[in-house]
Design a protein around this nucleic acid. Structure first.
Lengths: 225, 225
DNA sequence: CCATCAAGTAACTGTTTAGTTACCGGCTTG
DNA sequence: CAAGCCGGTAACTAAACAGTTACTTGATGG
């Protein structure tokens, strides 16, 4: 079908594509690259991730990657942004203000823990971004407004609890969120070194459940009267 | 050029007992490589660290690096091991059992927080090692015995507190340590993304002090009656 | 004073990597 | 149906990389 000497002029003829497989689907290709990049960056960090590996995982090639995302750094930022959008979107659906203050905080703690547990790639991306001192996140314009909602809603719940006399006056919304996130993040993201040095498999279901209860307990114990 | 003349020193002392001109200094070179590697790995991770950069930072060259440490991976493991030895050694000097149970736990929490604060490279190395699922740490033979002392001593303090009725029966030594470490680790290692998304400079001294107090408060609140 | 050996230097090598270029072919539209 | 745009392929390139080799320097003991 493809005749190399079609007009006799030797242009650098390459190997003809023999098996024409998939139909064209820009949206699918783009999404596949993003997902493959998420896995590759999460597993290997920014320095360890390979552009070739991403293209291969996505079932496409580097040309498309550069076409859709510019370069490795822009692709990485895109991955990071999507990861943040993912957790903040799920968080909004919680509506922690609909319950009693105590239940609301417990609910947020449970949600955060379980989200971390189900999205190890998010934790990993955070680790990588912090290794680089938020070099790429700081350039993001999309993410300024994304996080204020969380603190606002949490602040309301705490105020309500204080008025009802169940929470101490000193309870601070950022501190409460950092407490919840700390306990989940460290346990999961450092599970490999921790399991190694303490000789206990932290990912075992019983330990996981015990730690989930512990997070809720610690969070509430630190702000309750 | 520099002829000392005297060769009357016929003691078979292989080492020149004093006053080495320091042109050549194996011990110093070795230490310089280890320190340079610690910084390079902490700043760039395993995948991002460059062997050339380590040699240059150490004021030497790659030949010496490979001569003393074998290859990049062995050097990295060495750096990681030294980091663990550093914190566990400092920890032992605390003797948390010498005080009342409550003071002992508070002391451990304060120490851990301040050690993390003063050794950001340790946190960074932990992050890198966990990204790779403890691939190198698991191969280490030196580190099996290093950590049991911590849990043992902590366990004693908790038992004493339970007998005195100040701590709840459910208090678990590993959970207590993980709580302390979580709160310190997450705040510091994720300070860059956190400061960016929440618009607050977490490394500012007032915030740092507030978090230090918070860690002690949370830790004790979670185990006290 | 010279043989030896360890400390140290610098240029080199084969491979890997991010990013580019040359080319292909289906689809739309004038 | 020709023109050309757009999704897609694969080979290519310059630079960066981990690791090696050939060599120099200087202290020490015989």
């Amino acid at each position: 079908m493809n005749d190399n000497g079609q007009n006799g002029e030797k242009k650098k003829s390459r190997r003809p594509s023999q098996e024409r497989t998939a139909q064209r689907d820009p949206e699918r290709t783009r999404a596949a690259i993003l997902e493959a990049a998420t896995r590759e960056f999460a597993e290997n960090g920014m320095g360890g991730a390979r552009v070739d590996a991403i293209a291969e995982r996505a079932g496409t090639n580097k040309r498309m990657l550069y076409h859709y995302f510019g370069d490795k750094e822009q692709l990485y930022l895109r991955v990071l942004e999507e990861a943040y959008v993912g957790i903040r979107t799920a968080e909004r659906a919680l509506h922690i203000g609909d319950r009693s203050p105590e239940e609301g905080i417990g609910e947020l703690a449970l949600f955060t823990w379980r989200y971390f547990l189900q999205h190890p790639e998010f934790l990993s991306l955070l680790g990588t971004e912090n290794l680089h001192r938020a070099r790429w996140l700081r350039q993001s314009v999309r993410l300024k407004e994304l996080h204020s909602h969380l603190i606002g809603e949490l602040s309301d719940v705490l105020e309500r609890g204080k008025k009802q006399g169940v929470f101490v006056e000193s309870a601070d919304p950022l501190h409460v969120y950092l407490t919840i996130a700390s306990l989940g993040y460290f346990y999961l993201s450092n599970q490999y070194t921790l399991s190694t040095i303490f000789g206990r498999d932290l990912i075992e279901p019983n330990h996981l459940n015990a730690w989930e209860r512990h997070i809720v307990h610690v969070t509430l114990a630190s702000i309750k009267h």
